[in-house]
Structure formats: C-alpha cells, structure tokens
C-alpha cells in the first residue's frame, strides 16, 4: 500500500515533467492533440515509474510512445486494423464451434477428448487476446505473461487514480462548487 502511494507520487511527478516538456515543443493544439499529448505523457511516465524497469511491457510502451509521437496517425490506423482482425477471428471461431457441436452428437467417445481440447483452445485464445492487450505482449511467453499482467494492472490502477484526481481537481478549479 505504501508502495502504491509512492508509485503514484513518482508517476505524477514524471507525468507533469513530461507534459511540460511535450508542451513546450508545441503550442495551440486542438482537443485531440491535447488528449494525445496527455495520454502519451501519462503512458511514458507510467512506463518509467518503477524500481525495476526490466518488465517487457514497460520497454514496449516506451518504444511505442516514442514512435507514436512521431507518427500518430499510423498508430490509430493500426489499432483499427487490429480490431478488424479480432472480429474476424471470433467469427471463424464461432463457426468452428458450431461444427464441433454438430459432430458431438455423433460420437460420444470423442466428446471428452474434444471437451478438453476446446477448453485448452479457449484458454489459448484468451491468452492470445491478453497478449494483444498488453504492450509488447507478442514477446512474452505464458509464464512471464502473468507476471507482466500483474505489474501492468497495478500501474494502470495507479495511473487511473492519479488521473482521476487531476481531473476532479481541474474541474473544481474551473467551476467551483
């Protein structure tokens, strides 16, 4: 718990520093640019906020942000591309499953084998999805994926909390109660 608050402190400090740096480069941004700037700086700050920076997702996040600062449009297109791919995969999977169900009635002996097969398949599919969610997930194996997820969730939580604090603060500043 103490660690978490320290983490938040460090994160906020870095974030504000990053924001300053980023904003000194560019003035008069529109809403989306501003949003992107805020998000990128927050991500960067989160990635660099830790004692051990050995975790893969941090490295990947830093790499991603540094590239996306240069070419922001490409990142958006690639993300939409990803979504399309995901949709396709789910469709093919449901088809596959239907076929499975049809076959199941025919052969009961195979059923158990297939059940376990489906179970492992489900787990595999979800693992793949989780990998796609984490930054740098492609380079993780199963064992380190869980570790990374733990770490990532923890820092995401901290990030969300700090951001929420800042949002409420600035809202209150603009419209006092």
């Amino acid at each position: 718990m103490r660690n978490l608050s320290l983490l938040k402190q460090e994160f906020l400090r870095k974030w504000i520093k990053d924001l300053k740096k980023y904003n000194s480069q560019k003035k008069n941004m529109n809403l989306f640019e501003r949003k992107k700037a805020i998000k990128l700086s927050a991500d960067l700050a989160m990635a660099s906020t830790s004692k051990d920076k050995t975790t893969l997702w941090r490295k990947a996040l830093i790499a991603n942000t540094s590239t996306s600062i240069d070419e922001q449009d490409i990142s958006t297109t690639s993300s939409s591309h990803k979504k399309v791919i995901r949709k396709n995969s789910t469709n093919s999977y449901s088809l596959y499953r239907k076929r499975k169900i049809g076959r199941r009635k025919i052969n009961r002996a195979k059923e158990r084998v297939e059940a376990s097969f489906i179970a492992t398949r489900l787990v595999k599919k979800r693992t793949r999805r989780l990998k796609s969610l984490l930054p740098g997930g492609k380079f993780m194996d199963d064992a380190c994926l869980v570790d990374e997820t733990l770490d990532y969730i923890e820092s995401l939580k901290a990030q969300v909390e700090v951001m929420r604090c800042l949002v409420t603060a600035s809202e209150l500043f603009i419209n006092p109660p």
């Binding site: 949003k35 998000k39 991500d43 989780l130 990532y152 995401l156 969300v160 800042l166 809202e171």
Partner: peptide, 25 residues
C-alpha cells in the same frame, strides 16, 4: 482470463477517457 482481459480493457479505456476529459477541461 476473461475477467482479467475485461479489467485491463476497462482500465485502458478509463485512461483514454480521463485524458480526453483532462484535455476538454
């Protein structure tokens, strides 16, 4: 895993949303 995925996604969306809000505010 489903639950974890949902949670991570929701957190990521929250970050997105909050940064948008900050920019708007």
């Amino acid at each position: 895993l489903d639950e974890i995925i949902n949670y991570v996604q929701s957190l990521q969306r929250q970050v997105e949303f909050l940064s948008m809000k900050l920019a708007a505010v």
